[in-house]
């Protein structure tokens, strides 16, 4: 089955979509596609068939999102915890992923036509080498596309992602690119796998579970969470509409909370800069009192320097990540 579904919405769906679009729409929706195995059990199918149907539903959901003008979707495909499942099932899932990413490469032209950019978030090193290479190929091929974005979380947990971000920052410190005092909430966000995406506006979990299961914990702290009881392979356009409506109902309050948070963050950054300047002056000022104007100048100077340092580090990190994929990709070609 293909990744890209063509075809329009039917009349009723189209009208409903237009009504919803009159309100604020989420720009980024995240899905925990739960319930494939329960669906298979319910329908007396093989487990693998349930996972298959789950993938098909994803392709369909992407089509709905396109019609609803939702440019970015993130899905939880495989958690690091899922490696604990039986070898049989893990192997099956890896095989499915391999097939699907191969299929994706075959659909290159279509992906270009719709401008679909695929990103894979997670620690690829945990995956079999051939799968790593195919994923890298898919990522590198679609890297320049910029109309819609699909982020696939594979070998991912949020705690691992946050830890990895801390590790990257520590790497920057080791390299002498940044100081430990430069570590901030904004910088940590830039070091996450998801650094290229805005935070999701809406997170949907199916199959009636009401927890996040280590998915995008950092990114969804001000997102609308919608838990729906339908199993993922049975997900319908109307379920999606209901979730969007929930988002629209919470939109104003969440926006307010976000603004509050952003204000607070700016304040903290200002305080941290001030403290750093203060410390610096105490070390180099020979105890002489400093007038307000000089202090202000010093602070502006410090802020500019810090921003430059941090930007330089972020560029280096991006380069490191990009070349990880490019190297994997070229090793696949030469092999």
């Amino acid at each position: 089955m293909s990744w890209i579904r063509e075809g329009e919405l039917n009349l009723l769906e189209k009208i409903s979509a237009n009504i919803l679009k009159a309100g604020p729409m989420p720009k980024h929706v995240a899905f925990i596609m739960d319930g494939n195995r329960r669906f298979a059990r319910k329908k007396n199918m093989e487990r693998q068939e349930g996972h298959m149907q789950g993938f098909n539903k994803l392709a369909e959901t992407l089509r709905w999102c396109k019609h609803l003008n939702i440019p970015e979707v993130t899905v939880y495909a495989f958690s690091i915890e899922n490696f604990k499942r039986t070898k049989d099932e893990v192997d099956g899932l890896m095989e499915l992923a391999k097939q699907k990413f191969e299929r994706l490469l075959e659909e290159r032209d279509n992906l270009e036509k719709y401008g679909v950019c695929i990103r894979v978030l997670g620690d690829l090193n945990m995956l079999p080498h051939d799968l790593q290479q195919i994923i890298a190929k898919a990522v590198v091929t679609t890297r320049a596309h910029n109309k819609c974005f699909l982020n696939v979380c594979f070998a991912y947990t949020s705690r691992y992602e946050i830890t990895n971000a801390v590790r990257e920052m520590a790497w920057g410190v080791e390299q002498g690119r940044i100081n430990a005092s430069d570590v901030s909430e904004a910088l940590l966000s830039e070091c996450l796998y998801s650094n290229n995406s805005p935070n999701p506006d809406l997170l949907i979990r199916t199959s009636g579970e009401v927890r996040l299961s280590d998915f995008l914990l950092w990114q969804t702290s001000h997102s609308c969470l919608v838990f729906q009881s339908v199993l993922w392979p049975e997900y319908s356009f109307w379920n999606l509409c209901e979730a969007i409506l929930q988002y629209q109902l919470s939109h104003k309050s969440i926006q307010k909370a976000r603004d509050l948070h952003r204000e607070h963050q700016t304040q903290l950054q200002l305080e941290s800069d001030r403290a750093c300047v203060e410390e610096h002056m105490q070390h180099h000022g020979n105890g002489k009192p400093v007038d307000t104007q000089r202090r202000q100048e010093a602070q502006l100077h410090y802020t500019a320097c810090r921003e430059e340092r941090v930007q330089d580090f972020i560029d280096a990190l991006k380069h490191k990540r990009d070349s990880f994929f490019t190297d994997l990709c070229s090793s696949a070609i030469s092999a």
Partner: peptide, 15 residues
């Protein structure tokens, strides 16, 4: 009525 964690301990709410 707001469906969000509004910043409640992101690290600790894994499960």
């Amino acid at each position: 009525p707001v469906n969000s964690t509004l910043g409640f301990l992101p690290w600790h709410i894994r499960l």
